[in-house]
């Protein structure tokens, strides 16, 4: 296994109390595999990724428990120096907003080349040649002429491609892409997602794709982990989840999406609102909004049950996953 997150807990100390942003996340990704992490705003997708990358805001953040195994070794027990070496060379991250992630006062050629100068000890000239090669690879037209341009001189789509180039520079084995196309237009979004998927296959990397767009997920992911209130509530291969969700929250999400190919009546809407992380409801965090909730749900936290009826590995954190699966 390339990456395995086990029972991860992250808290933030805020003025109003302790916000439990991540409450026991389990997920894993293998080489060449794409895991999509899906969930509403505030469900803890980015915070989990930041913990994996080792870029969490500490304080106010704090890792309150769990393990993050990268190639079998727990990142949380490593020295900062070793983590820094792994970051960039072995795992890299692509952010939603490329403009703020790139340095505005350095040319893109300089920023790309620096990866090779610092990590590979290349000369400036060789590094620049590598930078042009990378820009070519992510299909920036006229890369040779544009290597001396600054980030703001590129369009949004090109900047996001440059971010991808930067993440891929050292051919890491794991890439985490946090909403890589949310800020882009639909047609440009399709370009960028295609490129990312192609390069991932080519380099056989593990990819964690964070998104709240169920459509993007279906296009590229092998498996999905659905988050709610800081936990994975359902994990399954893409096709299985669309065919028959085993958690009422996943079911609600799928039913809420308007479809392009048909004009429905009223849209299904999950009632109520996501929980306040300062006061997560006892029992199942979804119980105040769940149409299937029973007494048990208000008292007992559901563990991540294996969905034993499925021929492929999948799991659901619902006491009544069986009933949900059978509609």
């Amino acid at each position: 296994m390339l990456l395995e997150v086990r029972d991860l807990h992250v808290e933030f100390t805020t003025r109003d109390g302790v916000a439990k942003a991540v409450n026991g996340v389990d997920y894993s990704v293998e080489e060449g595999e794409t895991l999509a992490v899906l969930g509403e705003s505030g469900s803890g997708k980015s915070v989990t990724a930041q913990a994996v990358m080792g870029i969490l805001d500490v304080p106010p953040g704090r890792i309150a428990g769990g393990e993050i195994l990268f190639k079998g070794r727990d990142l949380l027990r490593m020295k900062e120096e070793e983590r820094r070496r792994i970051r960039g060379a072995e795992m890299a991250m692509i952010f939603q907003d490329a403009l703020s992630a790139l340095n505005p006062v350095l040319t893109v050629g300089k920023q790309l080349g620096e990866m090779y100068e610092v990590h590979r000890g290349m000369s400036r000239k060789d590094a620049r040649a590598k930078a042009v090669e990378l820009m070519d690879r992510v299909r920036i037209p006229a890369a040779k002429q544009r290597v001396g341009d600054y980030p703001h001189q590129f369009s949004g789509g090109m900047r996001q491609r440059i971010m991808i180039a930067m993440a891929l520079a050292l051919e890491p084995s794991l890439i985490i892409a946090d909403e890589p196309t949310t800020a882009l237009d639909v047609t440009v979004q399709a370009q960028v997602m295609d490129l990312l998927a192609e390069l991932q296959r080519e380099l056989n990397m593990g990819l964690i794709l964070i998104t709240h767009d169920l459509g993007v997920v279906a296009d590229v992911a092998d498996k999905i982990a659905v988050m709610y209130a800081g936990r994975i509530v359902e994990a399954a291969p893409v096709h299985e989840i669309y065919k028959a969700p085993a958690h009422p929250y996943t079911r609600g999400l799928l039913d809420s999406i308007p479809r392009l190919d048909q004009k429905g009546q009223e849209l299904y809407a999950i009632k109520g609102l996501p929980p306040n992380l300062l006061r997560i409801p006892p029992g199942c965090a979804f119980n105040p909004r769940c149409p299937m909730a029973q007494e048990l749900c208000r008292s007992d936290v559901p563990p991540l049950y294996p969905v034993t009826e499925s021929p492929v590995a999948r799991a659901s954190a619902c006491h009544f996953w069986k009933e949900c699966l059978h509609g």
Binding site: L214, V217, A218, L254
Partner: peptide
């Protein structure tokens, strides 16, 4: 270009 959620 619209991502279609349903794999089928």
């Amino acid at each position: 270009a619209v991502p279609v959620p349903d794999p089928q």
